[in-house]
Structure formats: structure tokens, C-alpha cells
Design a protein around this nucleic acid. Structure first.
Lengths: 202, 202
DNA sequence: TAGATTGTTAATCGATTAACAATC
DNA sequence: TAGATTGTTAATCGATTAACAATC
């Protein structure tokens, strides 16, 4: 019933709606939301119907309730604890940006090789030695991981993560990870993104 | 004939093939390539047929020729000059990773507010004041831009970029840019990516 | 020749679009 | 009531899958 694309658009809608809400907007039409999200009005309506939320003729959708409905659909009953592997430039940028933007997905620990960083707290996130990776993940019940380490180490670390109980990985390293199908992996190779822009910009 | 997904997969195939090539692999079957790229063998064959490249029964595809064929299809006749806006943690991470990985998309200039950084050369990329943005982009014929600045400034900068002649934007700021349809924008909000992983990991 | 893989075609599936009825 | 927007349904479109013929 709900497709992967559906979910992706719902995530985007929520982001846009929260932004508009902060500007004081109370109601919105499928037409307007679609414009911001690059979807057709019909698409927006279908997506919202899919999660059981309806608008009213003439007045459209109530922003506040819509955000609640989408969150109810997207959010896990319990927060999904997250960790990040690697605190280089990219790791710090992600921490900086994601820190407490979504309480349902708290980034709780950062694992690092560099002993100079271990023990510090960066953006409310404890920096721990990679040697303790398995222990901490199992003990704390961490479910998600963000990988920002060099290509060379990524596969090995990913396998250790999976063996410790990680269920989903956001992979910023330029490697296609070979992991069991039960693990959800989202790859975000930055060069591929740029190549895509290069192709479609012409 | 060629869909957006087609292109995206071709970009991924090339990346995988270049990796395998460096390990010494000469030939590959659609089955194997599909495994690495999370596509079906039939999908791989269709994608490659779409760009006019055929394999041979029994032996499959020649890696070297395949990389050439894909590159021929993806690459612009002339390199597409690229700039990056913002040299915070994220900007430096991207520069570090993308620097000279694809000569056809050289990142030539970085624009920065911070005067302490202006004038320096980071990863072979000159750091220039944002005040000179229009001049440099027009004079050098820069086509693509990567945005890594805070949400607040992104829309304004994006409009300046477009007015200077930028055709495609890779947007890492957490803002949906409102730009003419002729401009190709690829959004890479890192929080949305994490939310997607959170949803699909369960 | 037998086997493995490829390209080709037809059938299926799903998602999007278009037209319409329903509602405040 | 008239107008604007919504939900619903049928029609279209495209992409994927499955079965088969072709090739070295």
C-alpha cells in the first residue's frame, strides 16, 4: 500500500510543513505543498490519503494536524538510538546539523580511531574508541549507524556493526557495502550525486 | 528512452566497474554487476543496451570497454566547471573527497564569507570571497554549484548563482530551493536521509 | 554438442494522470 | 448558490518481470 517513494515524500512533506508552521501557517492546499515538494497536487493527496489523513474541500489541510499524522506514521514507538562512525569533517558536519533536530532518532555516540578525540563530548555526543564498538552498541541497544569513514575501512566496520545488532546504515563512504538483505543501507556517495547533477543540468 | 533511474544506475555501475577494474577484473556478467548494484541481471542488461553496449553470450561484458561506453554516454564533451559555496566542515569534506576524482567535473573555486579563509588554496581549490561570486562564475563559465551553507542564506545565494549562469545545483542545505524549472537541483538533506533509514530499518 | 549467458518479446505490475462526483 | 478544493474512479503510461530464442 505504502511504497518507498511514498515514504520518502512524506518525510519531505513533514520537513516542509514544520518549516511553514514556524512561519505561522495554519492551513495548506495540496497545490501549495506540491509546489514546495515538486509533486503534483494529486500526488500529495494520494500520499496523505495513504496514511489516512483527509483534507476538507475549500480549506485544504490543517498544518498542525498534518504534521502530527505524518509523524505518527513515520515515527517508531520508541526512539531509535543512532551512532556515527568517524568524526572527520563530514562526521562533525552531520552531528552539527542533526543534533536534536529529531528526538526520535538521537545520535548518541560517535566512534573514533583517533585517541585525541576519544573521551570528549561533541554536540552532546560522546566520543568513544572504535575498540568498544560492539560492547556499547549491544549494551545500549543502538539500532542505526552513520558511516563517514574512508572507503578502505567501511566494509569491515559495517560487518562489525551488523554483528552487534545494527539494523540500518546511512553510508557516506564511497563503497557499496555487501551486507545481509535484512539490513537497510542507504548510500550517499557525494561524487555520484555531483555526477547526477552534471548529467541532468544539461 | 533513457529514464532518470537509468542514468542513476549507470553512474553507479561505472563507479563499481572502476573499482573492480583496479582490482584487475577484465570481464563481468550482468548477474555479478547486478549483485553489487542491487539490480536484477535483466535490469543491468537493459540499462547497458540503452546506451548501445552489448555483451557476448558466455563471456558477458568487458569491463574496460564498458567503463568507456558509460563514460562516453555520461560525460559532457567539455568538462563542467564546478564551484562550492561554503567551506565549513561539510564543504571541506566534499572537497577532500571529490578532489580530482572525476576530471570531467572539476571543483575549481570555493566561495566563503570568512575572510580568514579567502585567498587560501584548499585541496587545489581557490578560496574566493562570496562578494566576487557573480564575476568569477560568469568569467570562468562555471556551470555547477554545491551548496553547503546554513539554511538561512541558501535561497538568496541560490538565486545569485542562477543569475550568474549556474545550471545545476547540489544542495546540502536543509532548504527546498525555489528556482526556475530549467535549473536542475538535487537535494541532499542529511536529516531526511537518516529518517529514511530509520523508517526502513524496521 | 551442451551449457551458460545474452538479447528479445509478451505479460504483468504499479504508479501517475485525467475526468468526474462530492463537499463545505 | 457559486466556487474552489477535495476524494474517487477509469485510462494511460512506463517500468519490471517472465518466458523464450539466439549465440559463442
Amino acid at each position: 500500500m505504502i511504497s518507498e517513494k511514498n515514504v520518502q515524500r512524506l518525510i519531505l512533506y513533514r520537513k516542509i510543513l514544520i518549516g511553514l508552521q514556524q512561519e505561522g501557517l495554519q492551513g495548506i492546499h495540496s497545490h501549495t505543498l506540491g509546489k514546495y515538494a515538486d509533486s503534483s497536487p494529486a500526488q500529495v493527496r494520494r500520499d496523505l490519503m495513504a496514511i489516512g489523513y483527509s483534507g476538507t474541500p475549500v480549506h485544504g489541510y490543517k498544518v498542525h494536524e498534518l504534521v502530527s499524522s505524518i509523524s505518527e506514521f513515520l515515527n517508531n514507538p520508541l526512539p531509535q538510538k543512532t551512532c556515527i562512525i568517524g568524526l572527520g569533517n563530514l562526521g562533525r558536519a552531520i552531528l552539527d546539523y542533526c543534533h536534536q533536530r529529531n528526538d526520535n532518532i538521537p545520535i548518541m555516540y560517535a566512534f573514533e580511531k583517533d585517541k585525541a578525540k576519544v573521551g570528549k563530548v561533541i554536540h552532546g555526543c560522546k566520543c568513544i574508541s572504535v575498540a568498544d564498538l560492539e560492547d556499547v552498541i549491544e549494551k545500549e541497544g543502538i539500532e542505526l549507524a552513520i558511516i563517514t569513514i574512508p572507503a578502505m575501512d567501511a566494509q569491515f566496520i559495517a560487518e562489525r556493526l551488523v554483528n552487534s545488532g545494527i539494523r540500518g546504515i546511512l553510508n557516506y563512504s564511497p563503497v557499496e557495502l555487501r551486507l545481509p538483505d535484512s539490513i537497510y543501507v542507504e548510500n550517499r556517495d557525494m561524487l555520484l550525486a555531483l555526477e547526477k547533477v552534471a548529467y541532468f543540468s544539461r
